[in-house]
Every structure is written in structure tokens, then in C-alpha cells.
Amino acid sequence: MVPRRVSFDWRETPLHWIPDEPTATHVVNVLHLLLPAGERWFVKVFKEGLPLVTDARLLQDVKGFMGQEATHSVQHSYVLNHLAEQRLDTDAYTRHVDFLFERLLGEEPPWGIPFPAGKWLLYRLAFIAAIEQFTAVLGDWVLRAEGLDRAGADEVMLDLLRWHGAEEIEHRAVAFDMYQHCGGSDPARYARRIVTMCVTAPVLLWLWAWGAAYLIRHDPQLAGRSRYSLREHNRAVDKGLLPTWRELGSAIPRYFRRSYHPSQEGSLRKAVDYLATSPAARAAAGAVGRAALGRRG
């Protein structure tokens, strides 16, 4: 599990990268609003937790996870720059996302809540595990989403989403294992996992609906003529352009099972196969190989 130093050329990617589907485009684009700050936060929290990791294999996986998430954050930030170049400014929304991760979920508990020593870190690790449940589900979906291909979605954006989705499947169990390991024999470990999912799921839904509404409302090509609607969202779902509500919702009761482990999510074989063919991942691997040959020379 290693970070792949990918890069993408956005110069030819249109604002509506799913042709004639602004709602589906912007529902997916919410990823770019949430992930830069969110994945930077993942890395910060995991750095705090590293001293608690006593298992060598898990420590190696955690470091690989951190490298991959840092790369994801950077690449999605570039998409925000691309949106801004097309006159879709996201700063008014992303400032709220930054506040959520940097202040409400920062190193110190919000509002001076008196958590016992070390417990706030465990809650934040549990939140990451809950979020990663959904990123694994989305990663599995986008790798199977033939509707995006049929709709003629932009190839560069598809590669970004599928490269990211494949890596989410690749490291789907790391955040869960990190939380379980750091929680140790704490009798509240399972209850904390349930509580944080009960918070995570509705907050993510709210952020997603708000983000989609924001993007559609500020889309310069729509010029205020459209609004986010559940009807249009469901129409895109029927076309295979968005995951079904059942796919997303069923991830929650699975996570609630005491015997649950994220290795049950998605297909690692499908993820690895995509990473072997992804234009961006292949280019990154080639660059690493050329650099190694240069050092030998």
C-alpha cells in the first residue's frame, strides 16, 4: 500500500463533465469540496495516533494510508482550482468545511468539553473509521459505474474518481483497524463506533445536499435557472450516474454488526486491476521507474 504520485490535466475538462447532466455532475463534485480538508484532517489525526500503534504491520499500513490520503487531498484541491478557473468559486462553502475539521474536530475538544485524557483522539479515530465506510462504498460504486461511461463522462475526471476509489478499496480497513487497535480493551470501544456512525451519516448527508445545492446555484452556465432537487437526483440514480440510496444506506447496518470488518467491502481484485490500467497511476509508476533508473545511472 503506497501513495501513487499521480497528476491530471484539467485543461480540456468541461464544467459539466457528465454531458447534459448538471445535477449528477455537481452531486459528485461535492467530493472535491469535502475531501481536501477532510483528508488533511485524517492525516493529522493519524499522526497523533501513531505513538499508540504497537503492531508493526498496522504501523506500515497506517503510514501507507496517510501517504495516499495526503495525495488525494492535493489532487482534489486542483479540481477546486479548475472550478474556480471556470468561474465557479467554492470558497464560501469550503470555509465551513475547514471550520468543521480544523476547529470542531481539531486537536482540542470543541466548546471546552471535558473529555478524559486520550478519549477525544479515540472519538476522532472512530469518526474517520465511519467516514471511511462510506468512501469504500463510493469507491466500489465508481469502479462499477458503467452509466458514467455510457453518458460520455470526461475521461480525466473518471480516472481521478476511479483511481481514488480503487485506493479507497485498497486501504478500506486501515482506519477501522487503527481505531480498534488504539481502543484496545476499552469496554466503550464498540459503543463509540456506533455513536460516531450515528453522527457521521446524517452530517455527511446534510453536507452533501448543501454542497450540491451550492454548486448548482453558483454554476455560471446555469445562471441561477436551476436548483438542486431530489427528483433530478433520483433521475440521475436511475441512469446509473449516482449510487442508489440503498447502496449508501445499507452500509450503516453492516457497520453496526459487532463482527463487521471493512475487508468485506468492495472487490480488492477490481481495485488492483483498475490501478494497473489507470492512465494516471501508470504514468506515476513510469515516472518512479525512470527516476530509479536515473539514480542507478
Score class of each variant (00 low, 15 high):
M1E: 12
P3T: 00
R5V: 04
D9T: 03
W17K: 04
I18W: 15
N29W: 06
L31E: 07
H32K: 00
P36T: 02
G38W: 10
E39P: 04
R40T: 07
R40Y: 09
F42G: 06
F42R: 06
K44A: 15
V45G: 04
F46Q: 08
R57Y: 13
K63C: 13
G64C: 08
S73D: 14
Q75L: 14
H82E: 14
R87V: 01
L88P: 00
L88A: 05
T90Q: 03
T94D: 01
T94W: 01
L100R: 04
G106Y: 00
E107K: 07
W111E: 02
K119Y: 04
W120R: 04
Y123M: 11
Y123P: 02
L125F: 09
L125D: 01
A126Y: 03
I131V: 12
T135F: 12
L143C: 02
R144K: 05
A145H: 06
D149A: 12
R150L: 09
R150W: 10
A153S: 14
A153M: 12
E155R: 10
L158S: 07
D159G: 06
D159Y: 13
R162L: 10
E170V: 11
R172Y: 13
A175E: 10
D177N: 11
Q180V: 09
Y190D: 07
Y190A: 01
R193M: 05
V195C: 05
C198M: 14
V199N: 02
A201C: 01
A201H: 06
L204P: 04
L207I: 04
L215A: 02
L215C: 03
D219F: 00
A223V: 01
G224M: 06
S226M: 13
L230C: 09
R235G: 14
D238Q: 15
L241V: 12
G249V: 12
S250Y: 14
A251T: 09
Q264T: 06
E265P: 01
S267G: 04
L268E: 12
K270T: 08
V272I: 06
L275W: 02
A276D: 06
T277R: 10
P279I: 00
A280P: 05
R282W: 00
A284C: 02
G286Y: 01
G289D: 14
L293G: 04
G294F: 08
G294C: 03
R296W: 12
